[in-house]
Nucleic acid binder design. Structure first.
Lengths: 148, 148
DNA sequence: TACGATTTAATCGTGTACGATATTAATCAC
DNA sequence: GTGATTAATATCGTACACGATTAAATCGTA
């Protein structure tokens, strides 16, 4: 019974903390006309523009079935362009428009707001980052082992 | 630029670790015919049966617009019953059926599997739980302050 | 070169998730 | 005690998110 508690709480910690962070993002992103997943795609593109759908999916752990409509919505807002790769027509290259690049400035205050909302000193933020990275690696290794 | 990195990574840590944990849950829950949110509702009911929709929503941070159809699916599977509260007909009481209670045994191995997948010693699991609890409280306080 | 296997996105169906709104029941004000 | 307000759930529209399937292009190899 005690073991069940620790487990449930820890999984639920991830779930509910993630959920709480979403509540911080929403009021920051709504004025920009973005959802959180859309913002993540733009963050990826701001870091390295001109990516193929699959590359964005790799970085965000998202499938094409999720990304295709999402990116089409970004295209509809004039933030990105979707073009077939000339060399390999299976691939769709996603590039920022000038509007998409410009939005980066309007979003530049967001990371600081989020970090502040966490309410942890820098060294604890880094420790949390490290711990979560270890957990993720361990969990993914287990998932891969089960899959095999 | 450095601040942006730490922030992005930490938010994304929660997002992607949560995502990875989902990959562990899915093969464990699919044989039981459950999704992760459905499992969470049952965990809540296994702990204290006969709750009102709003009480389940409080515990899981979910709205009635999410819970109503989800609980109806559990009802369709014969795991719970939904009945109007006799004293206050606005409320819908959710109670486990014998099948819903019985499923607890079939799911009893899951918490151990999850905890093992985390790959952390117990003291670090507890520390992570504590840290995430603090983060969540801080973030929720900030969200409430912004909302006010 | 031809043809089967692989890769890449897109599509489809199901299930969350939320905000806004609607609906119904209970409670409050006076 | 009736009308306004509040509370609880349900409904609706939009947007993820995934697995399974499909379609088209490329690659491997005979």
């Amino acid at each position: 019974m005690r073991g069940i508690d620790v487990d449930s709480m820890l999984c639920f910690d991830l779930y509910s903390t993630h959920h709480a962070v979403g509540q911080i993002y929403t009021p920051l992103l709504t004025p920009l006309g973005l959802t959180y997943p859309q913002y993540l795609v733009l963050v990826v593109l701001w870091r390295s523009d001109d990516l193929v759908v699959g590359e964005i999916g790799e970085r965000l752990h998202l499938e094409s079935s999720t990304l295709t409509p999402l990116i089409k919505r970004l295209e509809g807002q004039g933030l990105v362009r979707r073009t077939r790769d000339a060399r390999d027509e299976r691939k769709v290259r996603v590039t920022l428009t000038p509007e998409g690049r410009a939005l980066r400035q309007q979003a530049s205050h967001i990371p600081g707001c989020i970090m502040a909302a966490f309410g942890l000193p820098l060294d604890e933020l880094i420790a949390l980052h490290t711990t979560l990275g270890r957990v993720r690696a361990s969990v993914l290794a287990r998932a891969a082992a089960d899959g095999a």
